[in-house]
Structure formats: C-alpha cells, structure tokens
Design a protein around this nucleic acid. Sequence first.
DNA 1: TTGAAAGCGCTAACAA
DNA 2: TTGTTAGCGCTTTCAA
Lengths: 330, 330
Amino acid sequence: MARTRGTVTIRAVAEAAQVSPATVSRFLAGKTVRPELAERVRAVVEELGFRPNVIAQDLAQGRTRTIGVAVPDLENPYFTGILKGIGHEAQSAGYHLLVGDSGIAPELDVWRAVRQRCDGIIICSPYAPDEVLAEAVARLTPAVLVNRCAPAVPAPQVAVDSHSAMLELTGHLMNLGHRRLAYLAGPEQAWSDQERRRALDAARHFGAEVTVVSAGATAEDVVRAVDEALAARPTALLAFNDLVAFAALARLRELGIKVPEDVSVTGFDDIPYARLAVPALTSVRSPQPELGTLAWQVLSSLLAGETPVGFQTISAEVQHRETVAPSPER
Amino acid sequence: MARTRGTVTIRAVAEAAQVSPATVSRFLAGKTVRPELAERVRAVVEELGFRPNVIAQDLAQGRTRTIGVAVPDLENPYFTGILKGIGHEAQSAGYHLLVGDSGIAPELDVWRAVRQRCDGIIICSPYAPDEVLAEAVARLTPAVLVNRCAPAVPAPQVAVDSHSAMLELTGHLMNLGHRRLAYLAGPEQAWSDQERRRALDAARHFGAEVTVVSAGATAEDVVRAVDEALAARPTALLAFNDLVAFAALARLRELGIKVPEDVSVTGFDDIPYARLAVPALTSVRSPQPELGTLAWQVLSSLLAGETPVGFQTISAEVQHRETVAPSPER
DNA sequence: TTGAAAGCGCTAACAA
DNA sequence: TTGTTAGCGCTTTCAA
C-alpha cells in the first residue's frame, strides 16, 4: 500500500529516536515531553528532515485549517480585493485559502467541491437567487455570505453599505442643482444594485427625476444604455460601477458631450484607475479588503463555535473628484 | 476518537446496503459492480446523503487533486490574471486551487505551507534571488516557475517573452524617428525588467540613445523618475508597466507636455483601463490567463510523470494606440 | 510523562 | 465481481 515510498514518517522518527510515535507527536505539538527525549526527537527530526503529513493530521484531527472562498470571477478586481482581505487574515491565523472560481463550473458544484476540503466557506455570489442560496448553504455550514442580505439564508452575512453611499452621492448632486438623474443600472438580481436603486427611490422623494436604464454587461450595452438615458436629458449620470462609468465617459466623449460641464458622471467601487483617469472619476470607495477581513472574522467566530451577528455592513465613502460639477441648469 | 459524530461514512452505507465497504468504494469510483448491488448502494447513498470524506481519500490515495499557487500579491491584477488561467484549467481537470499570498508571510514559509497540502505548486516570485529559489524549489517538486528564467533552478519555467515585445516597441518608435528614449524601469531583480533592458540595449546598437531611470514603487517615485528622465530630453518614454505609464502621463500633463505631440509614451501589460484611457495607452498585451494555462499544462504533465520542456515562453503583442506618434524632431 | 492501541474514513492488494 | 484485510500517517485515549 506504499503509495509514498521514501517518505519520512513519524514512525521512522520514533524508531530512530527510540521513543513511541505518540511521544514524537506530542513533541511536535508542543506538549510536555521529558527534556532528554525531546532533544533526541528534535535531533532526529532535523537529521531526517521530517515534515509531518498534514493530510494525515487533517484526517486524524477532523479539521483542515483551510477555508474556502468562492468568487464569481477571479479576474474581477472587486473580488480579488476581497480575497486579499480574507487571505491576509486567514494566513496570519495559520489558515490556508482554497479558492473556487464559480464562473467556470456550475456554482453549486464549485461550492460543494471547495467546501469538502476545508473547515468553512465564504461565498461571494451576487446573482444566485435567495432560495437557491438558502438551500445550498444549509449543507455548507459553516458559511458566510458576502454582499448579500438575505434573511432567509441560514448563514451570517457581511456587506458594503452601498445604500448610504448612494444616498450621499445623490444628495450631493442635488445640492449642486441636479434634478434629472439617470442611473446606468447593474444586474437586477444583485443585492448591491437593489440597494443603489433604493437610494435613488429616496431621491425621488426629494424632487429628483430618475431614469433607470440597464447598463448590461458589455461596452456596447453601455453605449446603448447611455444613448437611451440621454433621451431624458439628465444632467447627471450615475453608473452601477466604475467600469460602466468609464464606458459611459467614452460614449459621451464620442457624442461631444462635455464632462462635467454638460453632464456629471459618477462611478462606484473606486477601482485604482478611477483616480488616474482624466478627468478623475468621482466614485465610491468600496473597501474590498476590509470586507474580506470582516468575512474572515465572522467565519472565524463561527469556527470557534460562537454565534456571530447575522448581518453586518461596512460603510463606503464618496470620493469627490473631477467628473461632478454643478448642474448647467442651476 | 469520534471527532466527527453523525457523519455518514462509507461503512454506514455498506452496512445499510448489506455489502462491503470495498464495494461501495468501487461503486463510487465507477468500477464494475453487479447491477443489483450497485442499485442498492446508490439508493442508500442517496437516502443517507452520503458524501465521501475527501481528506480520507487524499490520505489513502496519496494525492490531493489540489494544486498550490503562490503569488506575491493577490490584489495585483497581473497575478490574478494568471490565477484565472490556472484556475480555469485546473478546475476543468477536477483540481482545486490552494492560493498563497507571499506578500503576507515570509515567502518560503508560504511556499512550504501551500505545498504541504497539494500535489504540486506554481510559483510566481519575481524578486527572490535565483539561489534562494533554487534551494527552495528542490524541496517543493513538482513545481513550476512563472515569469522567471533561471536555468539553475530545478523546475520547469514559463514566461512571457517581454524581450521580443520590447524590441518591437522600440523598433516601432525608432521607425517613427525617435532617437532619444527613456525607460522608466521596474525592479532590477525582476527578470521581466531585465528582459526589457536587454531589448533597450539592442536598440542602442541601432542608434538609440537610451536613458534608464528607476521608476520605483509609488506614484511619487514615478514623478521623480519622469523629471529625471526629462533631463535627457527624450522624445519617447517607455514605462515598465501600465501603472507606471499612467503615473507618468499624469506628471507630463502637469508639466504641460503634450502626449503624443511632444513625447510618446508606452506602457506594458495592457491592463483593461489602458484602452479606455484618454489618450488610449499604447501598451503590450501580456496574456496572463494564457500564461496561467501554460503553467498548469506544464505542472499537469509533471504530475503525470512526464518531463516537460524546461523553459517556454508565450509571446506578447504590441497594442498600438494613441500615446505614440512620430518624433517631433523627425 | 510515556507507550500501546485504537481510531480518523477511505482505498487497494489479495484471495475467494 | 466480491469481501477480507491491511494499510495511508497521524492523534488521542487509556492504563501504566
């Protein structure tokens, strides 16, 4: 059955040091071992270059010290920002990161596969319907959800408060005299999009006239969306995220519409290029690493057998830059 | 010893189906089992909701179906692009991705820790000295190196051919009449930077006057580097990568220097924003996902016991855009 | 403090 | 084709 010939096992160490495997195990675990024995073991471990087989440890201990993270797209800086935050915390705590890209295989399969090899999972799934999520998550515990708010799902959730940020953004625009706003919307299923819409609904109560246009997924979709939005003669364009905003800016330039003189534009997420662009894009800083950190903390407390708060948000800050100016109609 | 009470094991299934555990194992592995038994097992598996414990499988089979990837920074789109490529291939092949961010803990510790829990590792380490790498990698096999060319390191290596791309770029500039070039250099230890410098050396043979200035790591460093480079009155600025290029563009704008009329600028990597920027940045498409794919293929053949080619490159293409124009001195 | 022994849950050689 | 048996390499109870 020797699949791993030549491997130095704990038994080999025990024999060479003339102690029992249990003693070696204890020594390695930092438990009290008589100094002479400890020294013998230490010497043999070094001489033989022994490295414990962590898979065997995992099996024996019923835990893996690994946590899984499922993201929809590894190439999207938004999710890798979250990953960074999780990774930082997890690695400091001696945990490893098993990553699944659910853009590749069916989301549920990815979740299950990832979850099998770790102690808990953090799920970023902006689009899966609540019911699907609820049923899946039940078999995945301990699990933490990122950027969702679905009370029906039996798992703690952490999210960025995009609603407040959007309120602040629209409030600011209205103070600058903007009355006709157009929203280049993201995917309807996304909770984060719903939150932004809610904020726009609020703005309506304060006299804003809001046009909502779906921005779709591709640059061409955005072009179409911008053209459609312009029909309502808005003085400000609010984009679902920075990428949509940039595509919109490109279209406005083509049309000879000046930003911010003729129309103001805002993004969301504050990706790195936002402040490098010309004009620099007014956006909302969405602190992905902090979100990841929070997600880890919640999962961590779950692993410790505690019962963390069911839903937590972190706030996002508006970054005022050059694409917003007073309304030309003021 | 029951650390996992209530778990449905293969033995429980075997008893309920009145067969041996081996039969259940075979059934699950898709080996031939008499139809009646197979059906009984299938039914029980479903009824009990049995899920094999993959950790136990890993131990018994001496493999994990997981590969490790170590990157210097999970938030850097360059590396996550590679990660995407690896993840895509690996997941399709039924492998999982264990990710280590070596920016967090000592690089060697991260490598070791990651390698312990998987069948092989892909290492992205632009800065570690060859000797360090060589020694470390020896204990990490099977391992594959990304974007390095270090013949002394006992592991296959894959890289983007930035040398050829840089040759093409400088050749193009010279054809446009540029003679005084300035290179805003990246980290000297990085092989990719050395490759770019080699190309510039070649350009010298063809009559180029090349100033090399270290661009450092921060935006302020770049400002200083640009100012220093301008002292040589270059007509073209070649940046180590797009981020440096954007920072340089910002500085040139501040100084009232027009791009591309007064000076041409090029980037490297072709990050998404490069083509959205105004003016759109001439850059070099560095296909990270393809690089990741190649890295996986090499590791995969290593896992299969084959001996892959020691060093492979993929080519990068110059993307001609708006920041390059004929030299004003032509 | 130490060692013997019994697991952790699964796979695979072997014999039937 | 099937069951028996012996691992995979480590941890942990238990008794000494």
